[in-house]
Write a protein that binds this DNA or RNA. Structure first.
Lengths: 321, 321
DNA sequence: CGACAATGGTTAAACGTTTAACCCGTGACG
DNA sequence: CGTCACGGGTTAAACGTTTAACCATTGTCG
């Protein structure tokens, strides 16, 4: 690897000068500048982030801690984060903690070793990291009290669903609500209930997990207690429900309507195409990075929670053909 | 940030000793070991990767360069890579180059600055990086001559499809083949043709892109030239084709059967559930890391191409109900 | 003409580790 | 008893940068 001192030697100048031309830190005469630059180019010089980081105390790196990269929700936000981060001259180190809080703890240690300048964190549950990292942290999707965060307006999403259900003329509804440990699930549920008020009869309202299979009691409820419309905790739940119903001979959406939440990439390809609430994936990632960058530049200040608008996506599943 | 010398000071020993206990590099008496360890713990010491990297010349980091994180194909391999890499004590820095060879070039520079010990590379096209990085590179999915790589047995996959088509009793077939710039597309096509031999009549065989919309000529061919079965370049193409056909009033799979390739996460949820060839996503990632680790430990030797077996997934779309 | 600022450069220390080279007792062995 | 090996330490250099503190030369201005 060629170093700055190698360049200095060959160009007959000091390392300080080389550093100055390479970073534009101080004025350097055009001739030396030119000289140094060509020597650097010829030697194929690549600066060492380690050395720079060690000296400056800034690593020009941010860490991304996510619970599960295969969750269809995440790739788009990760992509947006990566892009924004890199545009700002930072590198991205990423760790997937497989929905395990222990691995998550290890993740914080790992990014600590890298002395990252900031951390984007999609928490597996909503408890603050221990010990608190020294770099600023901004959460995505799942707010943690005391930390900066960005999330979608799940409550408004819930209301949008209610509105659509009422608009479609449904009279009875079944709810598969997400785990109440999740902020998003609570908010969606709250918004839905608010919106439904007493205009539609809620025949049942049972808890499910966000992914995985439907629990047995939920399955039997779905199959045995007929309603006009079922609202799923998220798209995956809605899709599983649709499958279950189809398999049992029901015609969707005419016999029973379905609505999801998230607008995962394949919501439009399932049968029937899923009506759902779209989260602004990319914006989520972008805003998180913007907020993080602000905090890096200027730490302190009250934690801020950015709530991004969602969008009702009317496809076929929520109303009779 | 607490440093090794801080610990040394408080424990009344030299930094060398601290380093030795923390890394187990040299024998240290139980008492000093104990002492140093508790001091380190109390101070919440976290080693600095920059310093270590600078001194040792190894960064304990690998770079992952991918063309597009939102491609449904990738999250599973990225996840596998991340896990394996981290198990081996490395960190993972990741860059998404948005299918752009210029960004890809920049990506190599970025990981170069980090002095990564190895690179996992999913190339956007199949031309070698310029200049060649000094760290070992292993490609995933898309082999590059002269480089180590791991890929799926696309040819065998093509043959499996042929077999399934013959088994289903189809007499005519249409092929939507992928861009011939891609190794995978070429191999699939080759295997398919081999397998079909003269047992089934190929009515048409037109090129398409892997994602995006179907080109106009492909659309009209699909709609106008009836065949028993259409084989898509990959799942996304197959799914778009199914949509197109359904929209035009055809009943799938009875009027026309469809098969895909890849087994992306939602292949089973579309209508009709897609018969396809599954690539071993996780294994792809794992093998790539294993190979990379071998190369890091022991560079040199002939480039190796690992070809992983694929699996035919028979769902509903490839034969009459 | 003297003082001074500006310009373009250099020197050297420092960042937090690792590690080769050295040092000092102590017990074993011939 | 002299020598040697070994266990358990220390010292100090080095890794590749950045950057504060200097320094020399030149031109400007009162």
């Amino acid at each position: 690897m060629t170093t700055i001192s190698e360049i200095a030697r060959r160009a007959g100048v000091s390392t300080a000068t080389v550093s100055n031309v390479l970073n534009g830190t101080k004025a350097v005469s055009p001739e030396t500048r030119e000289l140094v630059e060509t020597v650097a180019r010829e030697l194929g010089y690549t600066p060492s982030r380690s050395a720079r980081s060690l000296k400056t105390g800034r690593s020009a790196t941010v860490g991304l801690i996510a619970p599960d990269l295969t969750n269809p929700f995440f790739p788009a936000v990760v992509q947006a984060v990566e892009r924004k981060v890199r545009e700002a001259g930072y590198g991205l180190i990423i760790v997937d903690c497989h929905n395990d809080t222990l691995e998550e703890k290890a993740a914080f240690e790992l990014v600590g070793e890298y002395r990252v300048d900031g951390i984007i964190w999609i928490p597996v549950d909503e408890t603050p990291p221990e010990p608190m990292p020294s770099a600023p942290v901004v959460t995505v999707d799942r707010p943690v009290t005391g930390l900066d965060g960005v999330t979608s307006d799940h409550r408004a999403g819930g209301r949008m669903i209610a509105e659509a259900i009422i608009g479609a003329g449904h009279e009875t509804v079944g709810i598969l609500r997400g785990p109440s440990a999740h902020h998003s699930a609570r908010e969606r549920h709250r918004g839905l209930l608010d919106g439904l008020a007493d205009k539609v009869r809620i025949v049942w309202d049972v808890p499910v997990f966000f992914s995985l299979e439907l629990p047995d009691d939920a399955r039997s409820t779905i199959l045995e207690q007929a309603v006009d419309c079922i609202v799923g905790a998220n798209d995956q739940v809605a899709i599983r429900t649709a499958q279950l119903l189809s398999a049992s001979g029901q015609k969707l959406p005419d016999d029973v309507a379905i609505v999801g939440f998230d607008d995962i990439p394949w919501a439009e390809f399932v049968h029937p195409p899923l009506s759902t609430v779209r989260q602004p994936y990319r914006r989520l990632g972008q805003s998180a990075v913007e907020l993080l960058l602000r905090r890096i530049a200027d730490p302190g200040g009250e934690p801020e929670l950015i709530v991004l608008p969602v969008e009702w996506i009317a496809r076929a599943s929520h109303r009779r053909g």
